[in-house]
């Protein structure tokens, strides 16, 4: 196949709890496992038998991956919107500011950029799918797709319009290409009509796509 898309089954319901079980057995109703599913189980058995990984380490890593399914990003943006000093620290040193709120952004540099009335920032990783996982969780399918990776750097306005985001001609679009050592997070524009809102109310309108920059928050 030419792309990552179109290979996913949607018609079965996985039992997500069994991931935490170290005697984990794959869901047998799923039929025959694929090559890479088998490879994953084989690697796990071999590295654990040979002492390269303990059950405790694997469990902790599994819990971390599970927790990444729930993104903290919206809360961080809401705080940045209501606390200008925090926002300033985020823009100056993303890793340090995130550490303040208990988020370990990892070894890669986290660069935080802000959407303004004049600038729309968009994040991509053309070479692979580097993504601010510590803040946004795992990257969505489209972010990993060859279509997005290849096109957003040459025709960002067209790509944004495919996401339903129309950028006025007089606004600058800035596309940031991530690397293994450099990640980006977008602070979206705070929409009008949210004056006096609580952080909780604000967080509710901040979606993943707005923090990648392909969409903008709205109050409607």
């Amino acid at each position: 196949m030419a792309d990552e898309r179109g290979t996913h089954d949607h018609d079965h319901d996985h039992n997500h709890d069994h991931d935490h079980d170290l005697t984990f057995q794959p869901n047998i109703e799923d039929g025959e496992p694929g090559r890479y599913e088998l490879m994953t189980y084989a690697i796990r058995e071999l590295v654990m038998e040979k002492g390269h990984l303990t059950p405790e380490e694997l469990r902790a890593a599994q819990e971390k991956v599970e927790s990444l399914q729930k993104s903290d990003g919206a809360k961080i943006i809401a705080k940045a919107w209501t606390d200008p000093e925090f926002k300033q620290r985020l823009l100056e040193d993303g890793n340090a500011a995130l550490a303040e709120v208990g988020v370990d952004a990892g070894a890669a540099k986290m660069t935080v950029v802000e959407n303004t009335d004049d600038v729309q920032n968009v994040v991509v990783c053309t070479l692979c799918s580097c993504y601010p996982r510590a803040v946004l969780g795992m990257p969505p399918d489209w972010y990993r797709s060859k279509s997005y990776r290849s096109r957003v750097v040459i025709e960002p306005r067209k790509v944004l319009s495919e996401f339903g985001t129309d950028v006025p001609d007089d606004m600058t679009v800035r596309v940031h290409d991530s690397l293994a050592d450099l990640r980006y997070l977008v602070i979206p524009r705070r929409p009008e009509g949210t004056e006096g809102w609580s952080e909780e109310q604000l967080a509710a309108i901040v979606t993943r796509d707005t923090m990648v920059g392909v969409a903008n928050p709205s109050v409607s």
Partner: peptide
């Protein structure tokens, strides 16, 4: 770009972990 977002499969989470 296909905007559809799918959930990670159990083995994909295992491999990532």
């Amino acid at each position: 770009i296909d905007p559809e977002v799918t959930e990670m499969k159990p083995w994909e989470r295992q491999s990532t972990a």
